[in-house]
C-alpha cells in the first residue's frame, strides 16, 4: 500500500469532525446550525466507517454508511418540519428562547 494515506489520518479527520459537530451542538444557538452540527457528527462517523471498512477489506462499513445516510434523510424531513412549525408560532428558531417549559 505504498503511497496511500494511512488509516490513522482518516480517523484523525473523522475525530476532529465529530468534535466540531458535538461542540457546535453545545455552543451554537440557532436550531438550524445545531441541526447541521448533528449532521456533521453523523458524517464524521460515516468517514470512519468507510476508512475502517477499506482497511479491513469488508463491506459492512460501507453498507452501514448507506443506512446512516438514509436515516439521516428521514431525520431531516422530520426535523425541518418541526423547525418550520416552531418558526411559524414563535418567529424565531433560537434555542435559548425556547423556555416556555420550566419548573
Amino acid at each position: 500500500m505504498e503511497g496511500t494515506i494511512p488509516l490513522s489520518y482518516y480517523i484523525a479527520v473523522s475525530a476532529i469532525l465529530f468534535t466540531m459537530g458535538a461542540l457546535g451542538v453545545l455552543i451554537r444557538r440557532n436550531a438550524l446550525i445545531v441541526f447541521m452540527s448533528i449532521e456533521l457528527m453523523l458524517n464524521a462517523a460515516n468517514l470512519a466507517f468507510v476508512a475502517f471498512a477499506r482497511s479491513y477489506g469488508v463491506l459492512t462499513g460501507q453498507i452501514f454508511v448507506f443506512f446512516v445516510i438514509t436515516v439521516a434523510a428521514a431525520e431531516v424531513a422530520v426535523g425541518l418540519a418541526l423547525i418550520v412549525a416552531i418558526f411559524r408560532s414563535k418567529h424565531s428558531i433560537d434555542v435559548d428562547q425556547m423556555s416556555s417549559l420550566k419548573g
Partner: peptide, 10 residues
C-alpha cells in the same frame, strides 16, 4: 408541545 418536539428531536 412544539417546543417539546424540537427539544426531543435535537
Amino acid at each position: 408541545s412544539e417546543e417539546a418536539g424540537l427539544k426531543y428531536f435535537l
